[in-house]
Design a protein around this nucleic acid. Structure first.
Length: 294
DNA sequence: TTTGCCAGCCGCCTTACATCA
DNA sequence: GGTGATGTAAGGCGGCTGGCA
């Protein structure tokens, strides 16, 4: 399930009658606006998270390898620094050249292959041209990425570089992980939304069926001659401006209406037929939906 | 000021591989 | 050990945006 803090906006629906209330949440905000929601989280700031790693790159690299033991495919080759090659290509560039324009992002040249091999730790003789060895991120790497994602579901180039350095991954790998993570989040949210709409549909169908039944009963009542003659003369429904409930005149409402003993002069009037008395409970129920009593 | 080009990023779809029952 | 289901890293493409000449 999607955690609550991941949602920028939540909607809850209390289902009437016998339907058990199932609070469902909708995330109606675009992904780009989720930063505002994440600002509420009291966690170490993004900069704080990386100042320590940037403080001592050698220590960082050593620690990275310590928790990356067992996944040699991610280990950077000693001597060659793939991040530097794949990352800052020029003093003016703050973006990884690997994430460049399509035509240049995945060049089928030696540099690209070298970059891939570098990230996988696979030598040229091991790597076939069409092979696509897939690495699995370690639990520690995934946990750190998850933690970062909770703070920011998107990364600026600086954050990407810092996170890649911290994890011993290429910036492109961090970028891909965040892209896939956003896709997974969206997929889960879609499932939640779908379930929510499904429940809404079910409840509306049930409500519609019940209202149809009431209409049928009222029509049967109207067609009954004795009952029809005993009905009250045409009157009006008055609506209380404060609580927006329908107030029924005393002669129509059996036993009177203590909350609305009589329609106020300023109350809005809704012309209705002789069915005011019969319709009153329905009207009240309609307002109960709008103003659910806790 | 407008326009075209380019770099960079993202969403979406798909593929290929790893893992598990 | 073989197999299908599932999860996920990564490839590829189109679209959008901002910077720049």
């Amino acid at each position: 399930m999607v955690e609550k803090e991941d949602l920028g906006l939540s909607l809850s629906l209390s289902f009437p009658h016998n339907t058990p209330p199932i609070p469902l949440q909708l995330n109606l905000l675009p992904s780009s606006s989720s930063h505002a929601a994440s600002d509420n989280l009291h966690k170490p700031s993004w900069n704080d998270a990386f100042t320590s790693s940037d403080r001592d790159s050698e220590t960082c690299r050593f620690e990275g390898r310590s928790f990356l033991r067992g996944i040699d495919v991610n280990r950077l080759p000693s001597g060659g620094d793939c991040e530097e090659e794949a990352g800052v290509s020029s003093p003016n560039s703050t973006i990884s050249s690997v994430s460049g324009k399509r035509s240049e992002r995945e060049p089928h040249g030696e540099d690209h292959d070298a970059d891939r091999d570098c990230s996988r730790g696979i030598s040229d003789e091991e790597d076939g041209e069409t092979s696509r060895k897939k690495l699995r991120l370690s639990k520690d790497q995934s946990a750190i990425l998850e933690e970062s994602f909770k703070e920011h579901n998107t990364l600026n180039p600086k954050q990407k570089m810092a996170l890649a350095k911290r994890l011993g991954l290429r910036p492109r790998q961090v970028e891909v992980w965040f892209q896939n993570r956003r896709a997974r989040t969206k997929l889960k949210q879609t499932e939640v939304d779908c379930e929510f709409l499904k429940r809404c549909c079910e409840n509306l169908t049930e409500e519609n069926r019940r209202l149809q039944k009431e209409v049928h009963e009222l029509r049967a009542l109207k067609l009954s001659p004795q009952l029809y003659m005993q009905m009250t003369p045409p009157t009006t429904l008055t609506m209380c401006p404060s609580c927006e409930r329908v107030a029924v005149p005393p002669y129509a409402a059996v036993g009177g209406n203590r909350h609305h003993p009589m329609a106020q002069p300023h109350a809005r009037s809704i012309p209705v037929g002789r069915w005011a008395a019969a319709a009153a409970p329905i009207a009240h129920r309609a307002f109960d939906v709008l103003h659910p009593r806790s």
